[in-house]
Lab assay of single mutants.
Amino acid sequence: GETKIIYHLDGQETPYLVKLPLPAERVTLADFKGVLQRPSYKFFFKSMDDDFGVVKEEISDDNAKLPCFNGRVVSWLVSA
């Protein structure tokens, strides 16, 4: 499998796309960081919350699996 991750960088209009050679349910924050090489950023991901619906959730645990929608991951990188 392959996972497409779209990421928005510090408010830039056009998002970036990276592809990881892993199925979406196995991709972790560490996998994503390894491709990006951007150490001083906070990582937020499109996520579903039972109370609020669609939210941007910050993930900082490198072992955390990334939230996935239709085989895609959507993220926002914010300068720390």
Rank of each mutant, 00 (worst) to 15 (best):
F45Y: 03
W76F: 06
V55S: 10
D62M: 07
R38T: 14
P15N: 06
E2D: 06
V54F: 14
L17V: 15
L17A: 11
G34W: 04
P67M: 05
L9F: 05
K33S: 06
Y41G: 06
S79Y: 01
P23W: 01
D49F: 06
D51G: 12
D10T: 07
Q37N: 14
S47G: 08
G34I: 06
G53V: 12
P15A: 10
P23C: 02
E25T: 08
V54P: 13
S79A: 10
V73W: 05
D61Q: 11
L9P: 03
W76D: 00
F44I: 04
A24E: 07
L36M: 07
K46I: 10
K19C: 12
C68W: 02
L22V: 13
K19Q: 09
P23N: 01
V35P: 01
V74C: 04
N70C: 07
A80K: 14
R38Q: 12
T28C: 02
D50G: 13
P15L: 04
L9A: 06
G1Y: 11
I6R: 02
I59W: 03
G11R: 07
V74I: 13
R26F: 08
Y41D: 03
V54C: 13
D49H: 14
P39S: 13
G11V: 00
S60Q: 11
K65H: 13
M48G: 15
K33Y: 07
T14L: 08
A64D: 08
G53L: 09
N70L: 02
L20D: 03
N70Q: 08
G34H: 08
D61W: 03
E25P: 00
L36N: 06
P67W: 00
M48F: 11
K42I: 01
P21E: 09
R72M: 14
E58Q: 06
H8V: 06
A24L: 08
K42W: 02
D51N: 15
A64R: 08
K33Q: 00
I59C: 05
D31Y: 03
K42R: 14
Q12P: 04
S47I: 15
V18K: 05
L36Y: 00
R38F: 10
Q37W: 06
L17D: 03
L20V: 14
D51H: 13
F52D: 15
G1R: 10
T3M: 03
P15G: 07
I6T: 11
I59N: 02
V27A: 07
G71V: 01
K56N: 03
G34S: 14
C68G: 03
R72Q: 15
F44T: 03
S79N: 11
V74W: 09
V18G: 05
W76E: 01
V74S: 04
W76Q: 00
C68H: 14
P21Y: 03
P23L: 03
A24C: 11
L20Y: 06
F69D: 08
